[in-house]
């Protein structure tokens, strides 16, 4: 009887584990089945590198949106990563305990703010600021980059902080005992030693920026055109799906699923890279 119970419990847990995996499998299969036909009809090169997106007229080129996604995520990384990294160095190395106890949950709280609130705040606060002081419509790559930079902070800060704190105490003591200053110790010993964790933090942060939709829709302008400056509006891959899914039917809908495939592939590559880098460290 006891043995039967043991076996049963194992199976029940297996069932639940399978359900989460099968969700991934279902979504993947669904997207691929719905999206592949249009990619093969249009041709992968024309789909990915096509300059025109006019689904009602049979034009399915998503290149401007790829450029938009890359520009917005890169911008978010350029702004968010240095801030996040400095923040994690401060928290792990400089901050006295009472500051850490306030700072750390506060930064985690950023992850809890709904993205629509970020978007709304960006629309009301950041967009007019850019329009008034830098020109252009305000709805722009820059606006989206700034908002996304804030949104990726919790990811960048917590992962890089953990990798700094996980370093053996002896690295730091050894370096300090050699007569290095605190900053030299951080720069020449701790950051290089925590490099893989920090790179993983950056990649996961950028991955988050690429996937974000709601906040970006509200502030990026959504014009399907090649941007000429960071003050121009663009449309990203995610916002393309978000905007058009409401009314898309038939081939148009398939084209949106195909956009999803491209996104899926990009995010998978990024996550795999992050995993590879973190694993190389421990291995």
């Amino acid at each position: 009887m006891k043995k039967f119970k043991e076996n049963l419990s194992g199976r029940i847990f297996l069932l639940f584990a399978l359900s989460s995996i099968s969700a991934l499998a279902l979504i993947t299969v669904f997207i691929v089945v719905r999206g592949i036909p249009i990619i093969s009809d249009v041709g992968i090169m024309d789909f990915v590198f096509g300059m025109n997106w006019a689904p009602t007229e049979g034009e399915y080129g998503i290149f401007p949106m790829i450029v938009g996604t890359v520009a917005v995520s890169l911008g978010a990384g350029l702004i968010g990563v240095p801030i996040g990294l400095c923040c994690s160095i401060f928290l792990s190395e400089f901050a006295p305990p009472f500051i850490t106890t306030v700072f750390r949950p506060a930064i985690q709280l950023l992850a809890g703010i709904p993205s629509v609130v970020y978007g709304f705040w960006g629309l009301i606060f950041i967009v007019p600021l850019i329009r008034d002081y830098l020109g252009g419509p305000g709805l722009s790559i820059l606006a989206a980059s700034i908002i996304l930079a804030i949104m990726i902070l919790p990811t960048v800060v917590s992962i890089s902080e953990v990798s700094l704190l996980a370093l053996p105490r002896q690295y730091k003591e050894g370096a300090l005992a050699l007569g290095l200053t605190h900053w030299q110790t951080i720069r020449c010993v701790m950051l290089p030693a925590a490099k893989s964790g920090i790179v993983a933090a950056v990649i996961l942060g950028i991955g988050r920026a690429i996937g974000e939709t709601m906040a970006v829709i509200m502030i990026v302008g959504n014009a399907v055109a090649m941007p000429e400056s960071i003050l121009d509006p663009v449309r990203t891959l995610t916002t393309n799906i978000g905007i058009e899914m409401g009314y898309a039917t038939g081939i148009h809908q398939e084209a949106l699923f195909a956009t999803g495939i491209i996104l899926f592939v990009v995010i998978m590559i990024l996550n795999a890279t992050a995993q590879y880098i973190t694993r190389k460290k421990s291995g």
């Binding site: 300090l176 050699l178 007569g179 030693a193």
Partner: peptide
Amino acid sequence: VTELRRKVGMVFEIPTPLPLSIFDNVAYG
């Protein structure tokens, strides 16, 4: 403090080579 630590070198219980080459570990300081 850094002057002091250069004057008073320390070797620990657990060897703590830095993740560098043999040469660079010694050339570091």
